[in-house]
């Protein structure tokens, strides 16, 4: 591999926009306003309102990850079973909304779920009672699932598509029924995809603050909102960075678990 020098621009990029900012976060997180070293910003996670926000974030992102997995796996299987032309059409349908800005798509959900929104409009047209959808934890989960579902579907689809059909045929030949084949062959072979999908949904869901602001009416405080506010309105970058460091531990944890299942990085290949 004598073409390593081709990676130099990326190296510069990574240092300038990943490593240095990360070090700055560590610096801010570990110092107070006078610049003296302190653990206080990190320990601040133990204050009741921060713990509550963190727990709520973990819970909501866990629920949305599970929902994403339950929706994505069957879909990925259907995609693999279809002819190539149909598959690419359905994959296209999935990727198409991602061409549109994430904020706009979330704002669109606001319009759909609002009190006088599209959904309630249909309900009242059918003489059904209006539902209180917006500004609830459910709306936030919906927003997370909607926005992050493609990140679950694509890695699982990738892994499933790579499974040699002969392996499955062999299993059937040897007398395994459909369920057994799925549980003993397909599912274990797709673990790398599932693991990478879980990380790709869980991590952004855990750290989001936009979805909770737009669909939760700022009534539901997630840890992402706390951090965002420390930077924007409270102008306490030290506390914001300290809390980010704590959040990074959770992100790293989920990535470690994921890489344990996805040793070859198969699922990550999008």
């Amino acid at each position: 591999m004598n073409k390593k020098w081709l990676a130099t621009p990326y190296l510069f990029w990574a240092v300038a926009f990943i490593v240095i900012p990360l070090l700055m976060v560590v610096y801010y997180g570990m110092t107070d306003k006078t610049g003296a070293f302190t653990w206080e910003n990190v320990i601040a996670i133990t204050s009741p309102e921060h713990v509550k926000a963190l727990m709520l974030s973990l819970l909501l992102s866990l629920i949305s990850t599970i929902i994403c997995l339950l929706l994505a796996y069957p879909l990925a299987m259907i995609l693999v079973a279809k002819h190539a032309s149909k598959t690419s059409f359905i994959v296209m349908l999935f990727i198409l909304p991602m061409w549109m800005n994430f904020l706009l798509r979330t704002l669109a959900w606001q319009t759909l779920l609002e009190k006088n929104g599209v959904l309630n409009g249909i309900l009242s047209f059918l003489h059904l009672p209006a539902l209180n959808l917006i500004n609830t934890p459910g709306a936030i989960i919906l927003g997370m699932v909607y926005n992050f579902l493609p990140f679950m579907v694509l890695p699982i689809y990738n892994v499933l598509a790579k499974i040699d059909i002969n392996v499955i045929n062999a299993a059937r030949d040897l007398g395994a029924n459909g369920i057994q084949t799925f549980l003993k062959i397909t599912l274990p072979l797709s673990f790398p995809g599932i693991a990478s999908g879980i990380t790709m949904v869980f991590v952004p869901a855990l750290t989001t603050f936009v979805i909770s602001t737009l669909l939760g009416g700022s009534k539901i405080l997630l840890i992402g909102n706390v951090i965002e506010q420390e930077f924007t309105t409270a102008s306490n970058w030290h506390l914001g960075s300290g809390l980010s460091l704590v959040l990074m531990i959770f992100v790293l944890l989920s990535m470690v678990i994921s890489s344990f299942f996805d040793k070859d990085g198969e699922g990550a290949a999008l």
Binding site: P48, E49, H50, L221, V226, Q229, T233, A234, N236
Partner: peptide, 14 residues
């Protein structure tokens, strides 16, 4: 004071 008020606001929000 700013810090105190932000702290109280966080308590309201959470």
């Amino acid at each position: 004071f700013d810090e105190k008020l932000n702290e109280l606001w966080k308590q309201v929000k959470s």
